[in-house]
């Protein structure tokens, strides 16, 4: 299994890898010097031209990175304007004859957070072929992180509690169950957990957590990256049992987590249980809406006629025998079939 992964590069980044290069998640792929706030630099007056005339004398276009002393504009008669320090040229104001430049800060590394082989290198991005299993979620939060997978709960429907986060979780990607409170997420971050995979989370708690992180970042109290990915849904929704078992069987493997993109790569892994939109009789299914959200079961029968849900919505439906012992008629639109691992 391989997936193409794209690492976007900021303006003016210096790449450190070549095509064919094998990279590790913690490897620096490129460096960049992030620009600070923009400042004005007189151009027209130094060239002794009008503001409008000086437009044609610029040597650079917006987005160009200039080293200290590099030429920004020249008049052809020996007058020139040089960059006073390493900066990013943002634009030129033809009304007052100034250039808007942003000084470059200290060099910062750019990590890919993935293991794989570099397939292309450009000014805009580096592409890496990742050999591993991809698990896509329905939502997430945070940046790119990597770490070893560690199971934090024993059952797919179990809530991830703050007490399960200890020093052993530092730098790991924790796999939880049905939800985690804002307090648990805050503790996880404080303990240096790299990321968390959950069946679901209450949207409100996720937003509360994000809000506290923004405030802490504003006052400089947050360091390091942290990501959360939800696999099944929003609310108290457990991980599907088959997927939970798959994560269990890969505990200790290296994984990369992309919060905002809701993606997980697990390296050296078997394919995860695949899903199919339309379930058939005999399929193992997972339900996606309340009151059965996140529950797995077997589709026993598809009804001949459309059936009304308790809400009154009439839809093609089937009888599902859930793993918790309950049986219920569920709209087929709310079910996904889990493909058996050996199906091919």
């Amino acid at each position: 299994m391989s997936v193409m992964h794209r690492v976007r590069l900021p303006v003016g980044a210096t790449t450190l890898v070549e095509i064919g290069h094998g990279v590790e998640p913690a490897e620096v792929l490129a460096t960049s010097r992030p620009p600070g706030g923009g400042t004005s630099l007189q151009v027209a007056s130094r060239l002794r031209r009008s503001a409008a005339e000086a437009v044609d004398l610029l040597s650079v276009r917006p987005g160009t990175v200039l080293e200290a002393g590099e030429r920004l504009a020249e008049d052809g008669d020996g007058r020139e304007v040089l960059a006073p320090y390493a900066c990013l040229f943002l634009g030129y104001d033809a009304d007052d004859g100034t250039a808007l430049i942003a000084p470059l800060g200290a060099t910062e590394p750019i990590l890919g957070h993935v293991r794989g082989e570099v397939t292309s290198v450009g000014a805009e991005a580096i592409e890496i072929r990742v050999t591993g299993a991809l698990v896509a979620g329905v939502g997430g939060s945070g940046s790119a992180v990597h770490g070893e997978l560690r199971m934090a709960v024993h059952e797919p429907g179990e809530e991830l509690r703050a007490g399960a986060i200890d020093v052993g979780a530092t730098g790991r990607i924790m796999v939880g169950g049905s939800r985690a409170s804002a307090e648990t997420l805050t503790r996880a971050r404080a303990m240096g957990v790299a990321g968390i995979v959950l069946g679901g989370v209450l949207d409100k708690e996720l937003r509360d957590f994000e809000a506290t992180q923004v405030r802490r970042r504003e006052v400089g109290g947050v360091r390091g990256d942290f990501a959360i990915v939800m696999i099944s849904g929003f609310g108290k929704v457990g991980l599907d049992a088959a997927l939970f078992a798959w994560f269990q069987s890969h505990e200790g493997r290296l994984a990369s987590l992309f919060g905002a993109a809701a993606r997980i790569y697990v390296y050296d892994a078997d394919p995860p249980p695949a899903r199919r939109a339309l379930a058939r009789v005999g399929d193992r299914v997972i339900a996606h809406r309340r009151p059965f959200a996140g529950l797995g079961g077997e589709l026993v029968r598809v009804l001949d006629l459309p059936h009304a849900t308790p809400a009154g919505v009439t839809a093609r439906s089937g009888l599902v025998r859930f793993e918790d012992g309950r049986s219920a008629i569920v709209p087929l639109a709310n079910l996904e079939a889990m493909e058996p691992r050996d199906s091919g």
């Binding site: 609310g235 309340r290 849900t309 809400a311």
Partner: peptide, 14 residues
Amino acid sequence: QTLRARPASLPQTP
């Protein structure tokens, strides 16, 4: 959020 994440699913509860 469920409407966003699973737009082809249907409300089951009132």
